[in-house]
Simulated assay, not measured.
Amino acid sequence: MRPSRRPPARFPAPPAWAAGCLLGLSLLVPSAPAQNTPRDAEKKLQQVRGELKNVAQERQRLQAEREAASRRLREADQKVARSGRAVADTEAAMRREQQALAGLQQRRATLEANLSRQREQLAALLRGAYRLGNHAPLKLLLSQDRVADANRELAYHRYLQRERARTIASLAGDLQALSANEQEILARSRELEQARAQQREQAAALAEDRRRRAQLAAELDQRYQDRSEREKVLGKDARALEQLLSSLRAAAARAEAER
């Protein structure tokens, strides 16, 4: 008798959901499309989890650097603001000194005009007194009353001369004090001009430092955003792989049970 031949064993076809899981694994693991097994999925899951951990750590590091850069940027903003206020205060002080100098120059013009007028009047008095003094012999020929009037006029001229001389001396003193004030104002103006030049130079340096810090903060923020997006993508991949691995294990367990 011929031995009876057994029909070949037939395994049930995998359900549609298992085929979908295998297709998803093949998309997630392009380097090994032919090995759609739980081991492959688990290996890929471990890789994704490792990269996710690294990306999360890098994101946290970038977060700390970004916060530090933001603090430095705020400090730079404050320095730039203080520098701008210092320049504005110096320029305001320079305007006040210029106004004071203009007032002194106007007062100088008034004093010089008054001094010139007083000198002219004093010169006129001196000429009058000179004429009276040179005609002293003629006074003897005049009557006693005329001589007394001439003496009184001469005394009056001398009084006016003294007053004019005192006025001229006072005006000259005022002009000298005014000149000293002008020199002080000019010296302060030069100091303020130098201070403003230094402050402007410092303000420019602070503005450049602020620009660099802002650029660094923007770069760190962009890198942080990129890492955050990458972390989200890896998180989704990890969850998908976990679901796929669970499905593959379940399918493998049912297949083993059916055998």
Score class of each variant (00 low, 15 high):
residue 44 K to L: 09
residue 48 V to K: 08
residue 204 A to D: 04
residue 255 A to S: 13
residue 175 L to S: 03
residue 249 R to E: 14
residue 42 E to P: 03
residue 25 L to Y: 07
residue 137 P to H: 07
residue 119 R to A: 07
residue 140 L to C: 00
residue 145 D to E: 04
residue 243 Q to R: 07
residue 98 Q to H: 06
residue 191 E to F: 04
residue 117 R to F: 05
residue 223 R to T: 07
residue 175 L to Q: 13
residue 95 R to G: 04
residue 85 R to S: 09
residue 136 A to K: 08
residue 17 W to S: 01
residue 211 R to A: 10
residue 229 E to S: 12
residue 9 A to R: 14
residue 136 A to E: 13
residue 47 Q to Y: 05
residue 75 E to C: 03
residue 57 Q to R: 15
residue 149 D to G: 02
residue 154 L to T: 00
residue 234 L to Q: 04
residue 237 D to Y: 01
residue 129 A to T: 02
residue 151 N to C: 05
residue 208 E to H: 07
residue 175 L to T: 05
residue 174 D to H: 13
residue 236 K to V: 15
residue 8 P to E: 09
residue 51 E to D: 15
residue 91 E to A: 14
residue 218 A to I: 14
residue 72 R to Q: 14
residue 177 A to L: 10
residue 30 P to D: 05
residue 41 A to F: 00
residue 214 A to Y: 03
residue 21 C to D: 05
residue 183 Q to S: 13
residue 77 D to K: 15
residue 90 T to M: 13
residue 215 Q to P: 00
residue 100 A to E: 12
residue 224 Y to H: 12
residue 11 F to P: 04
residue 112 E to S: 13
residue 42 E to Q: 10
residue 68 A to G: 05
residue 53 K to L: 08
residue 141 L to I: 01
residue 12 P to L: 12
residue 170 S to T: 14
residue 116 S to E: 09
residue 180 A to S: 12
residue 198 Q to M: 04
residue 200 R to G: 07
residue 14 P to G: 08
residue 257 A to E: 14
residue 206 L to P: 00
residue 112 E to H: 03
residue 141 L to K: 03
